[in-house]
Amino acid sequence: MNLGRFILNRLGQIVITLFIITTFLFLLFRMMPGDPTSMILDPKMPPEAKELIRKEFGLDKPLMVQYLYYLKNTLTGNFGKSFYYPETVLEIVKRKLPPTILLFTTAVILSYLIGLPLGKTIAWRRGSRLEMGATVFGLFFYTVFIPWFGLIAIWVFSYRLGWFPIGGMLTPEVWAADVGLFPKIWDVLYHLILPLSVLTLLFFAGSMLLMRNSMLETLREDYILTARAKGLPERVIKNRHAARNAMLPVVTALTLSLAFSLNGGVLTETIFSWPGLGKALVEAVLNHDYPLAQAAFLLLAILVLFANLLADILYAYLDPRIKY
C-alpha cells in the first residue's frame, strides 16, 4: 500500500471517530446534572421570557431534534453562541488560541530542543555525575506539581525580586498607547518569560527522560556493537547510530505533546493569569456552556487524531522498515 492510500484510509477512520466523539460529547453534556439555562436565566424573569430564551437556543426541542441540529451545525463549522460569553464559540477560540500557542506550544518546542540533546548526552555518559544529576533534576521536575512550582516562581521572581510581572499576558496601557510594534512585542515577552520558563522546565524533564530511556535501549542493540567493531569514532556511533534510532519513539511523543499544547492548561493559566484556552474550557464545563465545551473538546479530539496521523507518517519516513 502506498502512502497516499494509507493517508486516505486513515482520514476515513478519523471521520468515523470524530462522528462518534461528536455524538458522545452531545450526550455527555445533556446527561450532566444542572440546567444550562440557569446561568443565563434570571429566576425573576417572567416565564414567557424564559421560554423565549430557551427557544432561542433550541433547548425546547426534543433531544433527537437538538442532536440533528447540532450535527448539521458542527458539520458546517457553526459551533453556535456561547451560553456564557456574548460571543460566538469561534470568536472565543480565535481570541484564546494565540496566547495558548504562544505559551504552551513554545514551551513544548523549547523543552524538546533542550531535552533531546541532554537526554542523548546523559544516556551516552551513563553512570557519570552529569547523568545522575540530570536524572534526579529531571525526575524532580517531572513529578513536581505545577501550581506549587509556579507559585514559588512568582513569589521569588515577581514578588521578591520584582523581575517579572505577577501575571497576565500584556500591559493594557502599553497596548492602548500609540508606541509602535516593538514596545508591544517586548511587553508580551516580558510577561511571557516567567510562565514560559516554568513550563519549559516541567516539560523538558519529560522529553529528556524519554530520550534518555530510548537511547539507553538503543545502546544495547547489536548494531551499536557492530558500529564499535567497525572502528567508528564515538561521535558517529552516538549520533548516526544511537541517537538516530532512539528518536523514533520520541517523535510520536513530540507530535502528541504539540497537539495537546494547543489546549492549554487550566492550572498554569490560572496561576499566571494567562488568557488561554484551558481555563475557558474548564469554565465552560462548570458553567454548562455546552456550545463552548463541546467545541473545545471536539477541537482537542481533532488535534489528537491528526497528530497521530502525522506521527505515523513521520515514523514511516524515519524508519525504513515501516511501509504503508
Partner: peptide, 19 residues
C-alpha cells in the same frame, strides 16, 4: 578495530542498523 582486526560477533542478525 575493523582495519587490522575484524569481528563478526554472535547473534549478528541485528548487527546492521535498520535505518
Amino acid at each position: 578495530r575493523g582495519r587490522r582486526i575484524s569481528l563478526i560477533f554472535q547473534a549478528a542478525l541485528n548487527a546492521l542498523n535498520p535505518v
